[in-house]
């Protein structure tokens, strides 16, 4: 599970490089996200543009990452592909996460 992180101002942008977050990679995803978010960053944006597929274990891992960030930090998601969007919608997790169509404007300008 390759994740590439880049600090842009107060936002940590993490790009998922693999095409799936699934049962076979969920634990690795969680562990790697935990490492990357050790640094103090009030906002974490996970860029999922390359993730074509996410199963329920992958979704559980994303939820676990958000919970691990604690109450004062946020996990936001961006660039969800069609099938990933469907999984979030059907589990109503789209109501829990802040989901951006694209990386937030302030992040793009800072890059």
């Amino acid at each position: 599970m390759e994740l590439v992180a880049e600090q842009r101002g107060e936002i940590l942008v993490v790009r998922a490089m693999d095409d799936r977050i699934d049962a076979a990679g969920a634990i690795q995803f969680k562990d790697r996200m935990r490492e990357l978010t050790l640094a103090a960053c009030p906002r974490v944006v996970l860029d999922m543009s390359r993730v074509a597929f996410l199963d329920s274990s992958g979704l559980g891992a994303v939820v676990a990452v958000m919970k691990a960030l604690g109450p004062d930090r946020k996990l936001e998601l961006s660039n969800l592909t069609t099938t990933v969007q469907k999984v979030f919608r059907l589990t109503r997790m789209d109501t829990v996460f802040t989901i951006h169509d694209h990386l937030p404007e302030d992040v793009r300008q800072a890059s």
Partner: peptide, 24 residues
């Protein structure tokens, strides 16, 4: 059946699988 969503502390991390299968 989906567990209730109670952000941010009590969010379920599982139990989505059969819901997805049954819905689709």
């Amino acid at each position: 059946i989906l567990a209730p969503l109670e952000p941010p502390t009590d969010l379920p991390e599982g139990g989505f699988g059969w819901h997805l299968i049954r819905t689709l």
